[in-house]
Amino acid sequence: MKADKIVLRKMQLTLKAPFRTSFGTQTVRSFFLTEVHTKDHVGYGECVVSANPFYSEETVGTAWHIVEDFLIPMIFEQGEISHPDEIGRIFGPIRRNNMAKAALEGAYWDLYAKQQGISLAQALGGTKEKIEVGVSIGIQEEIDDLYRLVEQFLEQGYRRMKIKIKPGKDVSVIRGLRQRFGDIPMMADANSAYTLDDVGIFEQLDEMNLMMIEQPLAHDDIFDHAKLQRQLKTPICLDESIHSCEDARKAIELGSTRIINIKVGRVGGLSEAKRIHDLCREHGVPVWCGGMLESGIGRAHNIAITSLPNFSLPGDTAGSSRYWQEDIIDPEVVVSPDGTIPVPAGPGIGYRPVPELLDKYTTSKKEYARG
């Protein structure tokens, strides 16, 4: 694979409804897409950053800078790339900036699969023909609004409800859901909003038969999570704390986590996501694929990685209509009534980015040609 040109597109999509977490409320999704062009194919990737450095230190502006000023020159200097696994080594001198790296690496994975005439899932070693999906529900001001959303998503077939929590909206919220809906598959996502001083809250949540409690403590912690896990029977799932296979290894050895949420952007790309998957499989730690409010392109990459066998818990890859009035791919991602999404069998990501829709939601665009 030798890129003739690389295109970056800043994009903006408006959410159908505000999405609220312990970080704040989001109404607009700002991100950018990467396109790697050769004579015969175009590979597409998505940089899943946000406008603000709340979930991670990366933003649209910082990631664009890293891709434009460092990663693209590294790619052009390298020239021929035989396999996407090589990209991690090429980008190795750049510390962190994982979402920037994943954006270009994902485009190369799509390009590679298209050149091979196989699906991205097959290129990654996926074995599933469909994936199970859950849905993530942001913090609601009124409990009745939360009940209404849960009812709606249960009717649509989603196999797991992820409930965002924060101090003051935690135990009473989960207890209310249990009383209303019984023993539905449900988890709580704290997004690092608590400390070990809040152990009493987790002891109460521990009695509510949750699938897991996701990232209850600090975003960069694995030590205190191990302390908390020893006090709970409910599995702790790590998200923000895991940026690499090495992070996962340490967390598993410390006993900090019994489940890991793999987000492709957070860990630096599909190759590293696959390595984390393999490590967790060796240690009997199930994984699932988290979401970053992706457009259809990022969503397609999530579907492909989730086809690997140890993605044994429903992920956050909801259908396009969960977030967008109009997605940028054809067909849009659709959840079947049984709570699954088919894994595309066509070459690459298996969904066609629609040029007219790409242009409609592009706020700026820049092309880089090989010198």
Rank of each mutant, 00 (worst) to 15 (best):
K169P: 00
L124R: 03
Q152W: 08
Y147V: 02
V135G: 14
G92M: 15
K365R: 06
R96T: 15
V150N: 15
C237G: 02
R249K: 15
D170W: 09
G339K: 08
W64V: 10
Y361I: 08
H65P: 07
I303C: 04
I72H: 12
R266S: 01
G126N: 00
Y323G: 06
H219L: 12
T363N: 02
E155W: 04
M211A: 07
V333T: 13
T363Q: 05
N97E: 06
I72R: 09
I81E: 05
T14L: 12
D145L: 06
V28R: 12
M187R: 13
P73C: 11
I174N: 07
D110G: 04
T25N: 05
D145T: 01
M292R: 11
Y147A: 12
A51E: 15
L254S: 04
A63T: 11
D206R: 05
V28S: 12
G79D: 07
D85T: 15
R249S: 05
Q179G: 11
V60M: 02
L120M: 08
R96E: 15
P18F: 02
I201H: 10
R266P: 00
P309R: 00
Y147N: 10
S30E: 13
S364Y: 09
D144Q: 15
T317S: 12
M292V: 09
R175P: 04
K5E: 08
N310G: 04
L313T: 08
E214V: 04
Q140E: 12
F70A: 09
L357D: 06
R148V: 01
V334N: 13
I6T: 04
A248M: 02
G348F: 09
V42M: 13
N302T: 03
A100C: 12
D197N: 07
K10W: 14
E272A: 03
G157D: 06
T38V: 00
I131K: 09
L293G: 11
I303T: 01
A226T: 01
E57K: 07
I201R: 10
P235D: 08
V67S: 02
K162S: 03
W288H: 01
A102H: 11
M1D: 07
A318E: 15
L104V: 08
I139S: 06
H243R: 15
A251E: 02
D327I: 08
